[in-house]
Amino acid sequence: MAERRFEVARLPGFATVAVATFVMLYLPIATLVTFSFNAGSSIAVWEGFSLHWYADAWNNQAVKDATVRSLVIAVWAAMISTTVATLAALGTTRRAAFKGETFIYVAINQPLMVPEIVTAVALMILFGMVKVATGYQGLGYLILAHSAFCIPFAYLPIRARLEGMDLSLESAAADLYASPWQTFRFVTLPLLGPGILAGAMLAFVISLDDVIITEFVKSGGQDTLPTYMLGQMRRTMTPEVNAISTALLALTVVLLTAFFLLTRKKG
């Protein structure tokens, strides 16, 4: 008689725990989305269906300014962090093992291991010194701070893509007298494209949603959409915040779905 393989899903109570976990995770999100369509101003009492909070958010100039600022920062941070992550991934995978490789890998992924509040305080001190020395107060600090924080998020899918790529095509290009640059441009880069795009989308989402680093680094009048919402919650909170959150949630779901489709293994 064949021995039955152990499966966690067959353990008693597994289904109950799984359902309870999903309910605890997604019930608050479902509630937020539902009350974004509330006709009244209460965030806890349903007063009928309406889209006017979405219209209010759309016509709110402060929301528009914060949204544009968030998108500008996220786009620049995604481009910078993805470029650095691509170079780092190539440098740590397309060569023989070397001394200090583990240290470099840990250093690249350091923002993932250190509490974000520590990174935020360190960046605040560093950029505070630069601000005093230069007098510059622009968005460049937020772009650099987000870029530094997003590098490991872009690095992981790019490195995973490189490690899963067949080296035979690159070897064949070298055998046909292609230069290293030609091999990279016409062979490696096209194959690496999905990983780069996935890393850029993940970095974009992380930057767009960031609150802690932005709150510590930004100067006056540089609210992003998440920090604007945080400020509104400290005052009188209305379903307009729910509407903005729902729009952000929809954008994040779309990007993460695209990330999943790009990184999943075919076949």
Rank of each mutant, 00 (worst) to 15 (best):
R185S: 13
P12L: 06
A15M: 04
L225F: 05
R185L: 03
W58I: 02
I143L: 06
L208G: 03
W76S: 02
L189G: 00
I43K: 10
F216W: 04
F6C: 09
K131M: 09
A18P: 03
G128E: 12
A62Q: 08
L230Q: 06
F127G: 03
A247G: 10
V205P: 01
T238F: 15
A200D: 04
R4E: 12
V84E: 04
V33P: 01
P115S: 05
V121F: 10
K64P: 01
L156T: 03
V217S: 02
L167H: 11
A39Y: 15
P194E: 09
A148I: 08
T214C: 07
F184G: 12
A258S: 11
A2F: 08
P190Y: 00
F259L: 02
L142E: 06
M233G: 06
R69I: 07
A133W: 12
L255V: 09
F153S: 04
T83Q: 04
N242I: 02
G267Q: 10
P239L: 05
G100N: 09
T257M: 09
G138E: 07
T227E: 01
A85Y: 01
P226N: 04
V253W: 15
G138V: 03
F103S: 15
V121L: 13
F49D: 02
G221E: 01
T102I: 03
Q137R: 15
V84T: 07
R4F: 00
L192H: 08
R234C: 00
F260H: 12
A154I: 08
S171E: 15
S168D: 14
I43F: 04
L261S: 08
G231I: 02
V8D: 02
L90Y: 07
Q182D: 13
T34H: 13
F216V: 08
I244L: 11
V63F: 02
T252S: 06
G135Y: 04
T83Y: 00
P226E: 00
K64W: 15
T252N: 04
G100R: 15
G138Q: 09
E3D: 05
A96R: 14
A57G: 08
Y54C: 02
V8M: 11
V205E: 00
E101Q: 15
L144G: 06
S41W: 11
W46A: 04
V17T: 13
G100D: 04
R235M: 09
W58E: 05
F98Q: 11
I244Y: 02
A85G: 12
A133L: 14
A178H: 03
V130I: 06
G40M: 06
R10M: 01
L112P: 01
G138L: 03
Q182G: 02
L25S: 01
S168K: 13
M129G: 15
L25A: 04
V118P: 05
E170R: 10
F22Q: 11
A250C: 09
N60E: 11
L156H: 02
R10G: 01
A172S: 11
A122K: 14
G164A: 04
Y136A: 00
T119L: 10
V72L: 12
T83R: 06
D166M: 05
C150P: 13
G193N: 08
G128K: 01
R94Q: 13
P190R: 07
L71T: 10
Q232S: 06
I158V: 12
A120C: 11
N38E: 13
A174Q: 14
H52Q: 14
F14Q: 14
F127C: 10
K64H: 15
T246N: 07
L142G: 01
